[in-house]
């Protein structure tokens, strides 16, 4: 039997380390690779980035973002068995006490980056997800909404 969708989504959100973040740079899309951590309720995702990066500047002027998380292995079989989750949402740069939860989750997920997340020049960003779209079996696409479907 095919794996239930929810299992695939959880695997991507909680087993993958890196995702491709798309931000808006004026009228152009701009992509970067980020280490992320997801809340267990799957409603939000955190990542950290140095203060001066272009992605952070982009978010400051336009919070619309999309994060692609996938499990490809750079093999021919990826086309048929890899899955990719696009998380669409709004990004917010955290401040004050809000950063604690983000730092804890990120440090737990990426222990080797603990110092990076603790640095005062590292901005912690929260993406509130408004929609997921999951692609698997090469072309099968399913959309769902955090809180409602999951």
């Amino acid at each position: 039997m095919k794996k239930p969708i929810i299992d695939t989504v959880k695997e991507l959100l909680f087993a993958q380390r890196l995702g491709i973040l798309a931000t808006v740079n004026d009228d152009s899309p701009y992509t970067s690779i980020v280490g992320f951590a997801a809340e267990p309720d799957m409603k939000s995702i955190y990542f950290g980035t140095p203060r001066a990066t272009l992605k952070l500047r982009n978010i400051q002027s336009n919070p619309a973002v999309s994060l692609l998380i996938d499990n490809r292995q750079n093999l021919g079989s990826d086309f048929s068995i890899a899955a990719a989750l696009t998380c669409v949402g709004g990004a917010k740069i955290l401040s004050g006490e809000e950063t604690d939860r983000a730092r804890d989750l990120l440090s737990e997920r990426h222990p080797e980056l603990r110092d990076f997340f603790a640095s005062p020049t590292c901005a912690l960003v929260k993406i509130s997800i408004c929609k997921f779209s999951l692609v698997r079996n090469f072309q099968e696409v399913t959309e769902f909404f955090p809180g409602k479907d999951l």
Partner: peptide, 10 residues
């Protein structure tokens, strides 16, 4: 039922 709305089916 599986969660979500199917957008593209194979």
């Amino acid at each position: 039922r599986e969660p979500g709305l199917k957008r593209q089916l194979v």
